[in-house]
């Protein structure tokens, strides 16, 4: 039971990170109808920028951890958001009304560019960082000397996710930008006729998605204490799986799907085999798509004849 509780905590933390990435996929899919293949790599870039800005800040002599974390968070969100904006501008916007495969291949190309850009610019070796947030609480002292631990970093990850999710839900449901986004999702032409700046709205979608991915990247860095140039690919597929599981286009669905994938992966590793955890996650994707093509919270698609 204690072991189970511990895995539950670990799974929720991992799921929060997946959920943050999944939101980017789901938003872009909802509004432009494409899988932004480069999104996993945006997450990776976010992790790198967090790492570098952290190093630079520490070498400047800053020691107050909360201040450092706040600056790192803002810097990596800002710069990564600019990556998202630039990619949309260069690789996707020219292809918006082109045929369907073109943006997808362009996105795959962009994913290669980002992966190899960070390999070339930062080297292929894994970048470890010492634990930044330490300590934690023992929730329950088990019988066999096994204790259920809740570390501070886990609390930070979950809290950050909740706060950002709240802010983000507010943006989508209450602000003018959110209204424009929902309008573009329904019908871009009509939205444009009613005075919505479609180009700008789509750009903002990419910016927000990238910013959230940057947060996920930073949380990943803090939680696992390392980044490498290849981490975007697998994380990206899993986050996409999460988005699909939750019902693509649905924001709460993305978060829910992220948590589900995080839990499945953690429990699979804990009770079955670590080697096959990715196989489990991908198999779930296939099974969900077959039996529940619209996901947990997605709207069913009615075929028009």
């Amino acid at each position: 039971m204690d072991y189970f509780a511990q895995q539950l905590i670990n799974g929720l933390v991992l799921g929060s990170i997946y959920g943050l990435i999944a939101i980017g996929y789901t938003m872009v899919y909802g509004i432009v109808g494409m899988i932004n293949f480069a999104h996993g790599d945006i997450f990776m870039i976010g992790g790198f920028i967090a790492l570098i800005s952290f190093l630079v800040l520490v070498s400047f002599g800053l020691t107050a951890v909360p201040v450092i974390l706040l600056i790192v968070l803002l810097v990596s969100m800002a710069i990564t958001a600019l990556y998202g904006w630039t990619i949309e501008r260069i690789a996707y916007r020219p292809l918006r009304h082109s045929f369907r495969l073109a943006p997808m291949l362009s996105a795959i190309g962009m994913s290669f560019v980002l992966t190899n850009f960070s390999q070339v610019s930062q080297g292929a070796r894994v970048k470890p960082v010492p634990p930044i947030i330490t300590g934690g609480y023992t929730l329950h002292e088990g019988a066999a000397g096994f204790a259920v631990q809740l570390s501070n970093i886990q609390i930070v990850v979950v809290l950050t996710t909740i706060v950002l999710l709240a802010v983000f839900t507010w943006i989508v449901s209450r602000t003018r930008l959110g209204r424009d986004m929902r309008a573009c999702e329904q019908d871009q032409t009509m939205a444009a006729l009613l005075g919505v700046d479609v180009d700008r709205t789509i750009s903002m979608t990419f910016v927000i998605g990238a910013a959230l991915a940057a947060v996920a990247g930073m949380m990943y860095l803090l939680y696992y204490g390392l980044v490498d140039f290849f981490m975007g690919f697998v994380a990206g597929i899993k986050a996409f799986t999460a988005a699909v599981l939750g019902g693509i286009g649905s924001l709460p669905g993305a978060m829910l799907g992220g948590l589900a994938i995080g839990l499945i992966e953690t429990f699979w590793s804990a009770y079955f085999s670590v080697e096959y955890k990715d196989v489990a996650a991908f198999s779930i994707l296939i099974v969900v798509l077959i039996f529940m093509p619209t996901g947990l919270l997605g709207r069913p698609e009615v075929e028009k004849v």
Binding site: I90, A91, P94, L95, S98, L105, S106, G109, V113, V120
Partner: peptide, 18 residues
Amino acid sequence: YRMLVFGMAMVLLMIWRP
């Protein structure tokens, strides 16, 4: 730089001749 160039080429080719 090979994959970097390959990725860029993919993007440019799609824009040029989708």
